[in-house]
Amino acid sequence: MAPLPIPDILFVIASVALITSAVLVVTIRNPVRSVLSLVLCFLFTTILWLLLQAEFLSLVLIFVYIGAVMTLFMFVVMMMHVDKRMLSEKFVSYLPLGVGLLVVFVGLIVYALHHHNFTKAAYVMPHFPANYHNTESLGAVLYTHYVLAFEMASVILLVALLAAISLVFQGRQSGKSQCVDKQIQAKKKDRLVVIDMKSEAP
C-alpha cells in the first residue's frame, strides 16, 4: 500500500477551508463574525505557506496579522455601530452586479490556469534541505534585489500615517478646564460694554 500523501491531503483541506472562510467574510451579516472569519482565513493561509516551507512568513502572518492587526481591527469593528438592515438592503441590490463581476474575474483566472502555460510539471512543490535558512534568503532578496521597492513601500506607510493624522487631528485640545491666570487677568473693560442710548418712553 502506498503511503498516505499527507501534504496533498493537508493542502486540499486547507484550501477548501480557506475559500469557505473567505466567502464567509463577505457574506456573514455580523461584522464581528466577519472579522473572525478573516482570522480563520489567515490561519489556513499559514498552513499553505508551511507546506511551501515558508516557515518565517507563516509565523509572521500569525504574529503580526492575527496577533496585532486583526486584534486592533476587531476593536474598531466592535466600537462602530453598523446598521445591519442597511447592509442587507445594499447587499441585495448590488448582488447582480457583484455576481456578474465575480463570474468575469474568476472565469478569466480559470481560463488562464487551464492554459497550457500552467502545467502541473512546471509547478512542483519546492523542497529545501534541512539547513536552509528561510529568513536569510528572504532578507537577502529583500535588501538587494528589491531594495528600491521595499523602501518605496516604507514611504507609503509614512504617507498613510501622515494622511490619517492630518485628517483626524483637530488641533491641540485644551479641554473644558478653567484657565486660572486668564480669569485673574480679566478686566472690567474686557467683559462689560456700556452702551449710551436714549431712554425710551414707557
Binding site: 521597492a149 518605496m152 485628517l167
Partner: peptide
C-alpha cells in the same frame, strides 16, 4: 511592474488626504 505600482500608490495616497483636508 513593482516600482510602477508602488510609485502610483505613493503619488495618489497623499492626494486623497489633500482632497479631503
Amino acid at each position: 511592474l513593482l516600482t510602477m505600482y508602488l510609485g502610483l500608490e505613493l503619488f495618489s495616497l497623499p492626494l486623497y488626504a489633500m482632497v479631503a483636508m
